[in-house]
Write a protein that binds this DNA or RNA. Sequence first.
DNA 1: TTACCGAGTGGAACCGGTTCCACTTTTGTA
DNA 2: TACAAAAGTGGAACCGGTTCCACTCGGTAA
Lengths: 349, 349
Amino acid sequence: MKKAPTIRDVAAAAGVSVSVVSRVLNPDSGPVAPAKREQVLNVISELGYRPRAAARELSAGHALTVGLVVTDLANPFFAQLADRVVWEARSHGVQVVVMTTQEDPHLEAESLDTLLDRSVGGVIATPTGGNVEKWDRLRDLGVHVVFVDRAIAELSDVDVVSIENSDSARRATDHLIALGHERIALITGPASTSTGRSRIGGYRAALESASLSLDPMLVRDVPFRGDGGGDAVGSLLASPDAPTGLIVANTAQVQSSVRRLVQMGVRIPDDLSVIVFDDNPWTELTSPPLSVIRQPIGMLAVHSLELVLGRMQGRLPAGARTIEVKADFVPRSSCVAPVGLVASKSVTG
Amino acid sequence: MKKAPTIRDVAAAAGVSVSVVSRVLNPDSGPVAPAKREQVLNVISELGYRPRAAARELSAGHALTVGLVVTDLANPFFAQLADRVVWEARSHGVQVVVMTTQEDPHLEAESLDTLLDRSVGGVIATPTGGNVEKWDRLRDLGVHVVFVDRAIAELSDVDVVSIENSDSARRATDHLIALGHERIALITGPASTSTGRSRIGGYRAALESASLSLDPMLVRDVPFRGDGGGDAVGSLLASPDAPTGLIVANTAQVQSSVRRLVQMGVRIPDDLSVIVFDDNPWTELTSPPLSVIRQPIGMLAVHSLELVLGRMQGRLPAGARTIEVKADFVPRSSCVAPVGLVASKSVTG
DNA sequence: TTACCGAGTGGAACCGGTTCCACTTTTGTA
DNA sequence: TACAAAAGTGGAACCGGTTCCACTCGGTAA
């Protein structure tokens, strides 16, 4: 087991001082005679020298690293987000430390502490909603934070990148209304989250435009974790006044919801028209392929990273920025006009 | 923007030397009087002091970090693997830096250099197959490497964690043979990879046991990237002598393959019995639900991390270890006996 | 000729931990 | 009571970079 060469080894081998080597390593940090620069570069490649990140961080006070804090990578939405963030980060020479929270504020707090220890330059996170003081402290210590997908009301001065939640929910609802549906159920995220509220807002707005009344029984805000989606499906369809249309706007609950529909033998779209948020690859492999709201995950990743790196390099004006990207509605075969005029029938389990 | 307290701030506030604080931070590194320990701990929590990771790494020479190098996180297999690795790592106080290679040895090489700069203690990787010298150099520099899912023939002295590839392929093939299939196609990974070879081996063994001949036309080893799975499906089914059974043993190509089957209107299992490797959550949402080989991803993650941490802490005997975990065959509804006795019929596109 | 400027260079302090070592205080044992 | 061993403590070097500063040159303007 060899020992990797250090900057002093390079300096010695090149017959110069460490200062010169450092200046070669960091152009713009001072002048170096062209001849010596050449010479140093030669020695560097000869020795296979690579500067130790830890040393640089220690003296710089912060690392060329960003933290990515998401619920879990098993969720395809976050997996794809992480994939793009990692990919984009690489092209900027930045590394990504991934942490998961399982939607647990306690684990989230732990993650933030860890990232602080690592002196990360920035954090891209889907916040659980808690830890308001902790986020504040993090920012106070100079860590640049960008929230993606969700925001926290108490932290209004944080950059946020998300999709147009309200508009997306509205378009999905409009689509079902246009087909003639009047009883449209919505399974969404907790009303305590910005995402949940916005999507309910869009849903409500669509109903109002169509002069349809909003039946609170049809709106289910369920947690991101657990099997709330499936349970909501069960309870919605068990009702004598069951909906003819369903929008699953909680990306974490789509699989659970669809699984329950399949288990219950619900025929889509004959028994129920369905639209789900987030275009997981499998949504077109089900039968019928599902109509979806496609979140431009790549855009979310690119903008988040752009923001966080921009802040780290101080090339962004002060003041929080909010970026909302448009989501596409992708119609497939899971929606048709409701059967009969009166939207009421039972579904056999 | 405040400045975080350092160990010297703590020492000063507690009226002791930095040595004492350091010993409190690292038990077993020396004695501390109980009273002073208490006192230091109080000051630490009062000040909210947290040791800077960079400083520790610099003096230790290596970081409490492991690198995870996979193809891409958009692949559910790797996403779940990463999820579990991150989760397990946290419980050991270790952070995970994720890098993706897109199956490109050049990008892989870059990732390894980066991880070297970061002085990671270990690397868990699904190697592309290239960069033999680079992996050697990494190990030579004291970085502990564990390959997961795949191995590299030239690097026989590296720890490997994988599933029983040969056995898994054999069981899938046996299942179809038992149903009466005689023309069974196999879509697998490149024959240049350990995984690809093992799975072909298991397939061949099953056929031999049943005294069936192996038709080379039915074995398609396709790259992990691209749309090779779909293309293979198309070409297999276009043959006048099309198979009645199909095993997709290239996890990266399952989606592509199934998508093509759906597009071609192939009726499963009537036209074709199908078994795919890897139990993605959506495999039971298709109609019919697909029979799968379920890879115990959690086990792969746990063992990989266990190995790499064990090496880092020097509590594992020398000598490469190979761990093979059993994969389950999960029968669902995508396999039936072939129609007719002579296995030959065309499928309409 | 002298004064001054900028390019080029090396020495040394610094970042914030860990660790070795010398030193003082207890404690234990003969 | 005497003396060795162990417990407890602080000083300072060290890890490998960055950066400030002082210094030496050559060239140019006064």
